[in-house]
Amino acid sequence: MSYLTPLLSSLGPWAAVLVGAVLFVETGLLVGFFLPGDSLLFAAGLLASSGVLSAPVWLIGLVAWLGAALGDQVGYLIGRRWGVRLIVPREQGGHRPRWLSGHHIDAAHEFFLHHGHKAVVLARFVPLVRTFTPVVAGTLDMPRRRFTAYNVLGGALWVLLLMAAGWYLGDVPFVATHVDLVTLALVAISLIPAAVAVLRRRASSRGEQAPEDDPENDSDKNAVRLP
């Protein structure tokens, strides 16, 4: 954000294109999981409210929504075409690329299995998970029309809520003069659900004792589960 915020301020009307492009890469190309989508939307709303951005806020929101929705559609298509290779680890017969974080994919897989199809909407608000959930949805053959509907709804809610938060908090003097600090706090807050999920998973794994040397149990572990 320390690079993106001044860049947004200097681009004029093209700031909307930058926001849309960042959200597209974050949600659609697998390599953008490190990009600050939440912070960028919040900062865009804040900077628009203070008049720093010349592009109208509705245009920034529209382009952001299109970038996020198209990114998820691309992720879904990747899942339909190559998803099993990405989800199943190499040690279980899959072909997951070594550069791709297995932990992130596994977290998105578990998130989707736990929440079902509504995970497409909920994942928007969970960093890292939102990058890989569309791939998991495509891999597990979620119906395309249903995915598209959830994708469009989730993208609209995500963009609207975070940009509205930035817009209305922009009038607060402390927020207006400490954009980077506020966006860092937003990142920390948005990571709480993911951290809670990790802690619950660890606690659950410690409490469960799977039978050893059970071929049937091993086959269940290796299977790609459906919701």
Score class of each variant (00 low, 15 high):
Arg206Thr: 10
His178Met: 07
Met142His: 08
Val17Phe: 12
Leu8Met: 12
Trp14Lys: 13
Gly71Phe: 03
Val25Ile: 15
His103Arg: 06
Val198Met: 03
Asp38Met: 09
Arg145Met: 03
Val136Thr: 01
Gly37Thr: 05
Thr148Met: 15
Trp65Thr: 09
Glu91Gly: 09
Trp167Ala: 14
Val129Pro: 03
Pro36Tyr: 07
Gly79Leu: 03
Leu62Val: 12
Leu77Met: 13
Thr133Tyr: 00
Trp14Glu: 12
Ala107Tyr: 01
Ile60His: 07
Phe34Lys: 03
Ser204Leu: 11
Asp171Trp: 12
Ala164Thr: 09
Ala123Lys: 00
Val196Lys: 09
Gly51Ser: 11
Val17Met: 12
Gln73Thr: 03
Pro143Phe: 03
Ala156Gly: 12
Val126Pro: 00
Gly93His: 11
Asn222Thr: 13
Val198Cys: 00
Ala185Pro: 03
Phe112Pro: 03
Gly51Gln: 11
Leu7Arg: 09
Gly102Leu: 08
Leu161Val: 05
Val224Cys: 12
Leu86Lys: 02
Gln92Lys: 15
Ile105Met: 03
Ser205Pro: 03
Trp82Met: 13
Trp65Glu: 08
Phe33Gly: 00
Gly67His: 09
Leu40Ser: 05
Val159Asp: 04
Leu8Cys: 09
Glu208Met: 15
Leu199Tyr: 08
Val22Met: 09
Gly166Phe: 06
Gly166Ala: 08
Gly32Asn: 06
Gly154Ala: 06
Leu62Lys: 07
Pro6Asn: 13
Val52Gln: 15
Ser190Leu: 02
Leu59Asn: 06
Phe112Ser: 06
Val120Ser: 01
Arg124Val: 00
Trp82Thr: 10
Val129Phe: 04
Phe24Ile: 03
Pro56Leu: 14
Ala185Gly: 15
Val17Tyr: 10
Asp106Gln: 14
Gly75Arg: 02
Gly20His: 09
Val126Ile: 09
Leu128Phe: 02
Glu91Ile: 11
Leu140Ser: 04
Leu162Val: 06
Trp82Ser: 13
Pro227Thr: 02
Gly138Lys: 06
Lys221Thr: 12
Ser205Ile: 05
Thr131Phe: 02
Ala156Glu: 05
Arg146His: 12
Val52Asp: 11
Ala21Gln: 03
Pro97Ile: 06
Leu66Cys: 15
Val121Asn: 00
Ser219Arg: 15
Asp180Thr: 05
Asp214Met: 12
Leu86Val: 04
Pro6Val: 13
Leu35His: 04
His178Pro: 02
Met1Ile: 09
Leu140Cys: 07
Ala137Glu: 01
Leu53Gln: 14
Val63Phe: 11
Pro227Phe: 04
Thr5Phe: 14
Gly32Ser: 08
Arg81Glu: 12
Leu162Cys: 08
Leu226Thr: 13
Leu23Met: 10
Leu226Ile: 13
Asp218Ala: 11
Trp14Asn: 11
Val19Tyr: 07
Pro36Gly: 06
His109Arg: 14
Arg81Ala: 13
Gln92Cys: 08
Leu100Phe: 10
Leu161Ala: 14
Ile192Pro: 02
Ala68Pro: 03
Leu100Trp: 06
Ser10Gln: 15
Thr133Lys: 01
Val31Cys: 13
Val179Phe: 08
Tyr76Asp: 06
Phe132Trp: 00
Val22Thr: 04
Phe34Ile: 05
Leu184Cys: 04
Ala43His: 09
Asp180Gln: 10
Ser205Gly: 06
Ser49Arg: 12
